[in-house]
Design a protein around this nucleic acid. Structure first.
Lengths: 249, 249
DNA sequence: CGGTAATTTGAAAGTCATCAAAATGAGTGG
DNA sequence: CCACTCATTTTGATGACTTTCAAATTACCG
């Protein structure tokens, strides 16, 4: 069964890699890139499949090339909390640690650019550009985690949903360029249950609050997953964050 | 008023520093330490005072030498969430960022070992040992943040209190050595309100749950702040985490 | 020994969870 | 192409847990 999950994929050359300028390799020079090219191997995981189980021996680290994965923690009685949402260019695994601390699950089909841990750690020691970039990325993740803590600890269910939607919109925006003002549209990459695990809610509450935002005209649904946002500032007001909506200071 | 908060203190020599082996300088060689010695200046902040306000220009980074500080986020309507608890050896500020992202407040009197940001960043570029140590520390903080997210999103009020108590006990243990089995004792370094901000609760709920744990014999109070834990495994069971209590596998 | 901040306690209300069932939708095979 | 099945989502009714508002109590400081 190991063989199944280790499906490999032909490697892309680093120069053509879509995450070349955002991933852990972003600061690497061309000679460093060549070395990475020799270490790496691609691996594709189908939607829904677990990449690593918490506690498992983990002999590789990886960058997400495409697709979406989640980090989750589970309590003994089954309560689960998502603690990371991994997008293209995000890093999986921790140099210097043998066992995975969280479950990593592919939400969509995911392609990983993997490095065996030992060789990667060795190279990191010799290559400041990698460690420096990983530090930047980790600091960004820590900031994101702290925003998330505010959401989990202090926001209402409605604010949580609105905030999650703005996060998804911003993510889409950072990947694609898009018209600033027109109505925004996107597909939810998460099930209601995954949204609930992200937000510290039940899936029923998620469903109810999504419906409420729809009733109030903050969002428009086409099907269950496709969302249109007629007025982004209106959505922002619902998040509880800086009501920076009035821009006429 | 700036002068007030900039009270300086005579520097300790790095060799004699109590956080020498845990702080951002932990991996530095003696020559590197000498250079840091030239950059650093001590600063002491009285209990209750804010060190930096979120959004402020921040021209230094620092290590906590002694005392306890908190990182908090505040929403417009006043809801606040603690997002970091800073103990001796913890790092304050982010290299490469001009403005503080959070409020930093001294819970007890705090002594900081400060470095002006620009010189520190310059040295970091030249000194891999600093960046490497900062990466380790940031990864640890990220793990802690993720545990915290599970607490905020999924634990009950009672479990939250029990978990916070174990965190404080473990912290004390990591600083001092202590008898493994006897009843543990310590002073709460946080007010009920600070505990509430940590846990995403109201201070009333904190008070009630502390009283409930006392009634149930999980903890013993002497005064409001001094706590004795007669049976640590019993407390662990209350956290909702791995009921690893039964150690007779 | 007051005075103020911190903490506890009480009563009522609200938000979200839980349990249950219906509705919707996607994929499969006839 | 449609019926069927299973997973996902919605909706409803009820209740638990936590918050809110208020007041009493305790502790700390000068």
């Amino acid at each position: 069964m190991r063989a199944h999950s280790l499906a490999t994929t032909p490697n892309l050359k680093c120069e053509d890699c879509p995450i070349r300028h955002r991933a852990v390799c972003a600061k690497c020079e061309s000679d460093e890139l060549r070395e990475l090219d020799g270490l790496k191997y691609y691996r594709t995981v189908p939607a829904g499949q677990t990449v690593v189980w918490s506690g498992d021996e983990m002999d590789f680290v990886a960058s997400i090339v495409s697709g979406i994965a989640t980090l989750t923690q589970t309590m003994e009685d089954g309560r689960t909390q998502m603690v990371g949402l991994l997008l293209p260019s995000d890093f999986v695994g921790r140099p210097g640690r043998a066992q995975a601390a969280y479950d990593v699950t592919a939400t969509t089909e995911v392609t990983l650019c993997c490095f065996r841990k030992r060789p990667f750690e060795d190279m990191m020691r010799r290559t400041p550009n990698i460690g420096q970039r990983l530090l930047e990325m980790t600091l960004d993740e820590l900031d994101a985690a702290r925003e998330w803590m505010l959401l989990l600890g202090r926001k209402t269910a409605r604010e949580k949903i609105a905030t999650l939607l703005t996060i998804i919109v911003r993510r889409d925006a950072s990947l694609q360029l898009m018209g600033r003002d027109g109505p925004l549209e996107f597909d939810l990459p998460l099930t209601r249950e995954a949204m609930a695990d992200y937000l510290g809610l039940t899936l029923e509450t998620v469903s109810r609050q999504v419906s409420a935002l729809r009733r109030d005209g903050v969002i428009v649904l086409k099907g269950k997953r496709h969302i249109t946002i007629p007025d982004f500032d209106r959505l922002l007001e619902e998040t509880g964050d800086d009501a920076d909506g009035g821009m006429l200071t």
